[in-house]
């Protein structure tokens, strides 16, 4: 479980996150949604410790990240898996090497043991015949799968995904969403996904946190988010014509 208490973050005097408090539960897929520039990525990077925070506290299973020393932070970081927006795969390494990399750096495992584990996760994310390929030889969807495989290879307790669907077609997006949710349930990890893809919200958002100009605008489940009275959230959710039509059909069905 990850708990955030009164988190504030500014960049050169500009407030980016203002008094954010929330809780991300274990074994659940938590989504952070909001417009571009609302502070989603900054919040994610603050939780990961990539950005320092101005005030507030972040707790990983009730242990304050701010009160940890470098060694304790390093241990927590080994329990974190991260899927970056652009996958952030190491260009010069093959798929297999990318996935083995965290084990190579952080464990005492022998090469064969690492290879066995890498192949397990490669199989888990349904990557076929890609072990020896370089990231540049893979499609966007396959790169995302490799990134997910690398993120879960160390059996993390926390999984972070920064816009995992960006640049993917709707079908591949759904496959990636489902994969993340399956992994979350299977490994019982705390997953936090940063997205503005409403399909993801509809399909996998067990808990949704809406950010608005750096403030916590709303939070609830994916069932509640589509019927909320909060006008800002509603405007954001139904900003696309497709979703407006879906809402119309849904309301017509309910009226009849």
């Amino acid at each position: 479980m990850i708990t955030i208490k009164n988190l504030n973050k500014t960049f050169a005097g500009a407030v980016v996150l203002n008094d954010i408090s929330t809780e991300f539960e274990n074994g659940k897929t938590n989504l952070i949604i909001g417009q571009s520039g609302s502070g989603k990525t900054v919040l994610l990077k603050c939780i990961l410790g990539l950005f320092g925070i101005d005030s507030g506290e972040i707790f990983f299973d009730k242990k304050s990240f701010q009160k940890m020393n470098i060694k304790q932070r390093s241990v927590i970081r080994q329990e974190i898996g991260m899927v970056f927006q652009g996958s952030a795969l190491f260009d010069s390494m093959t798929v297999e090497e990318n996935i083995m990399f965290p084990m190579q750096m952080l464990t005492q495992k022998g090469f064969e043991e690492m290879q066995v584990r890498a192949n397990q996760v490669i199989e888990r994310v349904n990557l076929v015949n890609a072990n020896k390929k370089l990231p540049s030889e893979l499609s966007g969807g396959m790169q995302k799968r490799v990134a997910i495989a690398r993120a879960i290879v160390m059996n993390p307790k926390y999984l972070f995904c920064d816009e995992p669907n960006s640049g993917l077609d709707p079908k591949t997006s759904t496959i990636i969403d489902n994969l993340i949710q399956e992994i979350t349930e299977e490994y019982e990890i705390t997953t936090i996904i940063n997205t503005h893809d409403m399909n993801s919200v509809m399909e996998i958002g067990e808990k949704v946190l809406f950010l608005e100009n750096g403030n916590k605008g709303w939070e609830g489940s994916n069932k509640e988010v589509f019927n909320t009275d909060n006008q800002t959230v509603s405007n954001f959710i139904y900003s696309s014509n497709l979703f407006k039509k879906v809402r119309k059909v849904y309301r017509n069905e309910n009226d009849n």
Partner: peptide, 17 residues
């Protein structure tokens, strides 16, 4: 610089390296 732009350095940091 390319590693920074493509978040590869962030990926290393997240691993605690």
């Amino acid at each position: 610089g390319t590693m920074r732009v493509t978040e590869q350095i962030d990926a290393l940091k997240v691993m605690g390296i």
